[in-house]
Deep mutational scan, measured.
Amino acid sequence: TKIIYHMDEEETPYLVKLPVAPERVTLADFKNVLSNRPVHAYKFFFKSMDQDFGVVKEEIFDDNAKLPCFNGRVVSWL
């Protein structure tokens, strides 16, 4: 699974690849690859589809939650 993530106000996003199927990747999986960053200091928002509003940034805080996936990749903002 490819996860593209944006940090603070930085213009260029980062990319990490996880050896987990897109439909199975969790917030804990993502946090594990960010071990060099203080993950407890961040809120995690993900590109998600809402039936009422369309594409939104959804906050996910449960480490066991599966991450929303679009075209085989996850897009996140920290």
Rank of each mutant, 00 (worst) to 15 (best):
K2W: 12
K2H: 11
I3W: 00
I3C: 03
I4H: 05
Y5L: 08
H6E: 00
D8N: 15
E9N: 15
E9F: 08
E11M: 06
E11D: 13
E11W: 06
E11C: 06
T12I: 09
Y14Q: 15
Y14P: 00
L15I: 14
V16S: 05
V16A: 12
L18V: 12
L18Q: 01
P19C: 06
P19R: 08
V20A: 00
V20N: 02
A21R: 08
P22Q: 04
P22H: 05
E23T: 08
T26M: 04
T26A: 04
L27M: 01
A28F: 06
D29F: 02
D29Q: 05
F30H: 02
F30D: 04
F30W: 00
N32Y: 05
S35F: 12
S35G: 13
N36K: 10
R37L: 11
P38L: 09
H40R: 14
Y42N: 04
F44H: 01
F44C: 03
F45Y: 14
F45V: 05
F45T: 05
F46L: 01
F46V: 03
K47H: 06
K47C: 13
M49P: 06
D50I: 07
Q51T: 12
Q51K: 10
D52V: 09
D52S: 13
D52P: 12
F53S: 15
F53W: 11
G54C: 15
G54P: 15
V56Q: 13
V56K: 15
V56F: 15
E58V: 14
E58D: 10
E58A: 11
E59F: 05
E59V: 05
E59Y: 07
F61Y: 09
F61E: 11
F61D: 10
N64P: 03
N64M: 03
A65Q: 13
A65G: 06
A65H: 05
A65F: 01
K66Y: 09
K66D: 05
K66N: 09
P68Y: 00
P68E: 01
P68D: 05
P68I: 04
C69L: 12
F70H: 10
G72A: 03
R73C: 15
R73H: 14
V75F: 10
V75C: 07
V75D: 08
V75M: 11
S76C: 12
